[in-house]
Structures are given as structure tokens and as C-alpha cells.
Design a protein around this nucleic acid. Structure first.
Lengths: 189, 189
DNA sequence: CCTGTTCATTGACTTGAGTCAATAAATTCA
DNA sequence: TGAATTTATTGACTCAAGTCAATGAACAGG
């Protein structure tokens, strides 16, 4: 029986059966209802996440206004900045759908590392990957107009457009819902 | 005699004298004239960098137009996406001043890792740190207006404003030089 | 199935950034 | 130093995104 976390790790190194078992066993998962806040502004994240099922959104609340920065879906890890820095989070994490999520803690990750030393080296690769992704996201934001960003999103994550209400997509693209509505009209009519 | 790279690594773990010596010895540095291109679009990065002295800028060339994404200065590491992915770079790296830079290669870094296993674990922390920084940069870009971004830059890196011409700062902020000029006028007059 | 709420669209108007073009200031270097 | 080049400022105009407000569509809960 396959485990999404094992699949994820397999992108970086091949796990032995024993290692697979260790990962599978130590795995702790929970389910959350749509609307559940996984992390609030001002709180210190005690856990990191790996999404098995569902969709999670990160956003800031600036002058009472949502500023969406990311949507996470199946097989994506979420390492809150606050989890790394141990300082209060500046943003929220909220479940956009009913979710099944695997939780990580510093303790359990240390335990896992001691059992699987090979994982330690892999940690850098995973982080490197995520860093490269984050950079590309930033660069894309700088390079493209809102309209181009929307078309890009359609290409790269067409599913998102159906899973998430448009006014949140708009925020994610850095524009107002009315503007997104007009962009769509401009493009398809 | 202190070594900036040793100082940098010391933020993550304390190095023994022996370890310090290894890092210091294996260190390979070069100097570059202002205007030198360290990495071109289309080329695969064979090296990563650590800036000992000077300033390096990364930028895309989109329809013949500069899109500045980052300025790197003293004691900052630069790991080009292309260095990680082994694919052609989409952006340029250029020296904005005469620079002294330490070079890293996969081979020499592997060698270093084998001599200093403790460094491997640290790799993940360094990457984690950089990831957190990159996220905050992105989030700030989403949250703030061009005007606020300029004021923020003044606070966090006042030196940059003197080291780099304004039209490149403008590009970095995601606006045109004329607009930055007007923002400055709005703010200080 | 109806009702209230949330989400999406549209219109009229404002505003801030972009564009084009000219000029001024600052730098470079022969 | 002085001429050439690069960088910064300013003005007049355009245009895309924001704002405010109203209407319509989709959806959830009783």
C-alpha cells in the first residue's frame, strides 16, 4: 500500500523497505474540517504539515483585508516561517476544504533523523528545491502583468481555479476581484 | 585572522579550530571587475558564490528590458537556481562593483562535506533560513505598495540606495524610474 | 424548495503607474 | 578640464487597476 509521504521522499532518494516502514509507522495524521485555522497570526507554529488530501491557503490580514500568498494542495509540505524561526507567525494557514494532513514536530523529526541518517542530507535537497520554487514564484510575480499571471495560473494549476473562489484567486494574483472579473471578460468574449 | 565564510557558518554551528582551518584552506576566491557577468541567461551555472566584497545583481531580460530581482552584498551566499537544477539559467548575475567572491563547486562542496560531516546537517538549516527570507520578500511584495516598498528598503538597506543607481532600484521595486522619481518627490518635498 | 448569504459581474468614476519626450544633473574618462 | 554618456527629473497624456455601488448568479441551510 502506497504512502504519499514515502512517494514524496522517493523523489530525493530511494528508500529501503525498512526505511519505508519507519516512515510509514511514525507517520501521524489528522483530519480537519473546511475552514479550520491551522495557524493564526501571532501564534508560534509548533508543527509543520504535509497535505495528504485537501487544500490549505496562507494569507495575511492587512487592515482587515486578505492578502493570499499561497495555496497548498496534495503532496505539498508546508513549513511555516514561524516553525523555523520560533517567532509569532505573521500569517494564517486555513483549510479551504476538508483536509487530511500529516503533522511534523521538531521532536519527531529529530527522532526520524536519528533512525534514518540519510534523511538529514536529503533535508538540504528538499529545502533547496523549495527555495528554487519560491524564487521562481517571486520572479514570475515581478516579471508578469496580472493578466499574464492569470493565464499562467490557468496553465500550471487549472484545478485551483475550480477548487477556490475567484475573489481569493484575485488576491493571490495581487489584484481585486472586480479586476479579475474584467480580465476574464477581456480574454474570453 | 577572521574569514567571512567562517563567520557565516558560525551563525549555524560553532566550528572547532580544525574545522575552521579546513574551511579557510579549501576556500577559493577570485576578484571581478565591475560589470562582469557571473552567469548569463541560457548558461548552466557551474558555481555558486559567496560575496566577500562588493555587490552582485540578479536580473531577467524580458523583451529587452531589465527586471531586477535581487541585490547581493557582503557575506551573502548566492546559489543560482541553475546551479541546483543543472538547467540553463533564466537570469543574469552581474557585478555592480568590483567584487571579491568565493566560489563553490559541487565537487569541492562534496569534498568539504566528507571532511566535515557536521556541515551536511547545517546545509538544511542554511537553506531553511534562505527559504524563510525569500518567502518574506515575496510576501512583502504582495502586501506593500511601491511607495511602501521604497520606504521599507530605505529602512532595511539604506546603503543599497547609495551603491546602486536609482533606475535599477526602481526595477527592483517593480516600477519605472520615472515613477520612483515621483514617489521620492511626493515623500520628500 | 425557498430564503439568506456569499460570490461574481457590470457600470461610472478616480487614481496611480506607464509612456513618450524633453531637459537637467551627475559621472566617466580621454 | 571639458565633452560624451549615463542617470535623474519633469511635464503632458494614456491606460489599467482601484473604488463605490448596484445587480445577478450560485450555493448552503433550514
Amino acid at each position: 500500500m502506497s504512502n504519499p509521504i514515502v512517494d514524496f521522499l522517493s523523489k530525493y532518494i530511494d528508500l529501503t523497505q525498512e526505511e519505508t516502514d519507519i516512515v510509514t509507522n511514525q507517520d501521524m495524521m489528522r483530519s480537519y474540517k473546511k475552514g479550520t485555522i491551522l495557524l493564526s497570526e501571532g501564534k508560534i507554529a509548533k508543527e509543520c504539515f504535509f497535505i495528504l488530501q485537501g487544500c490549505v491557503m496562507s494569507y495575511y490580514l492587512v487592515d482587515g483585508e486578505f492578502k493570499v500568498t499561497e495555496f497548498f494542495t496534495e503532496s505539498q509540505p508546508i513549513t511555516p516561517v514561524s516553525y523555523t524561526t520560533k517567532k509569532p507567525s505573521e500569517y494564517f494557514l486555513e483549510c479551504m476544504e476538508d483536509c487530511i494532513i500529516s503533522l511534523g514536530t521538531p521532536e519527531r523529526s529529530a527522532e526520524l533523523m536519528s533512525k534514518l541518517p540519510r534523511l538529514a542530507a536529503m533535508g538540504a535537497s528538499i529545502m533547496e528545491d523549495q527555495l528554487a520554487n519560491q524564487r521562481m514564484k517571486y520572479d514570475e510575480f515581478i516579471k508578469l502583468s496580472p493578466e499574464d499571471r492569470y493565464q499562467n495560473l490557468q496553465k500550471t494549476s487549472p484545478d485551483l481555479l475550480n477548487r477556490v473562489p475567484q475573489y481569493l484567486i484575485a488576491s493571490y494574483l495581487g489584484i481585486k476581484p472586480e479586476t479579475l472579473s474584467r480580465i476574464r471578460k477581456r480574454l474570453y468574449s
